[in-house]
Simulated scan of single mutants.
Amino acid sequence: MLFDVIIRLLLAVGLISFINANGITTGGVVVSVCVFLILEVSLLCDNKNVCYALTASSFVIAALFSGKPFNGAHFMMLVMFGGFAIISLILYEKMMKYKKLLNMTRDDSKELEKMLEEKNKRLMSEQDQQVHLATLAERNRIAREIHDNVGHLLSRGILLLGAIATVNKDEKLKPQLDMLAGTLDESMEKMRSSVHDLHDDSIDLKKNLEDIISELKNYEVTTDLDLDEEFDIKIKLSLIGILKEAVTNIIKHSNGDSVSIILQRNYSFCSLSVTDNGNVPDDEKDRILAGNIDGIGLQNILNRARSLGGDAYFYTDEGFTVFARLPLEH
């Protein structure tokens, strides 16, 4: 809008100078005011054709009332002002068109960014769901083994004890047999309670990490995993998800041949480092150094770490390193 106002103002100054080129008269002043008003009114028109018609009419009025004689110099001046007006209006229309396209591009970019963020959330949710399903399967397997093995042995013992108590004629043994029967019944109840109380803490972190590491079949892998102490369920899920993303990134993008995986645990935090010796392009190094993480997998690693109050870092000094630091709850 400001650019359009400036164009109209410059045209008004030029046409007024053209009208009063032979001297300032009362008629020239009146015509100059009319031309100025016509040009400013054209700014208020939403219809482009009306706007262009009013602009053109100001040139016609200036040409008719510019005074005589209407020589070649006057004609050339009028042509110059007309050319300036046409070129300015064309450039203004182009600028508005590109501005509109830029706004549309920004809107589309925001929409795509929002869609990508939602897809990342769904992807992380699906990965967590896969881990959860694996946990449920492991829980059911343990419960089934306890039920089939220990449960059957206890049931058989209870039945045998019942049969012995039935045929027993020695009254002195009856209290001991009753005590033994009570103990077996209590054991059966506790076993059933333990089977039903199995929960997500039964996730085998070591097995899950080893399963993910086994995907690196074409790499020489060295590991140093501190798994002596138990981790919280949230930390387990996050470590499994981060390692999965890092290994997937190596398989897809790394041209190296060796991978180092280190999991360390301190009193207040644990850290997971995954390094491969592949070459990282210079432009990718610059983007990572600038903090521009555009990969879905790397962004998921960041989101997982930060969701627990931790953080993740990416280094390209020697190959490519994913370093995640997660706080521990005490």
Rank of each mutant, 00 (worst) to 15 (best):
A85F: 02
L101W: 11
R106G: 11
D148P: 01
G151D: 04
M104A: 11
N20D: 10
T55M: 03
R144H: 15
A12W: 01
R144A: 15
S32C: 10
L11A: 00
V150S: 00
L133A: 14
L54V: 00
C45S: 02
M77K: 09
V41M: 08
L78D: 02
L44V: 13
N120D: 11
D108P: 03
L44W: 15
N120F: 05
A134Q: 11
F84G: 01
K119V: 10
A63I: 09
L9F: 11
N47A: 03
K114R: 07
S66G: 14
L101Y: 12
H152A: 02
A134S: 12
I90A: 12
I16G: 01
E113Y: 13
V33E: 08
H147S: 14
G14M: 10
G82L: 05
G151C: 06
K100I: 12
A85G: 00
I16N: 05
K48P: 04
E126Y: 15
T105R: 13
E111N: 07
I61M: 09
I61T: 07
V131L: 12
K97L: 07
C34N: 04
L154C: 12
F59M: 03
D128R: 15
G82R: 00
D108Y: 07
M115R: 09
I19F: 04
L78A: 03
K110D: 10
V30T: 02
L11N: 00
A63Q: 03
Q127L: 13
G67Q: 01
K94L: 05
G28I: 05
Y98A: 02
M77N: 11
G28S: 02
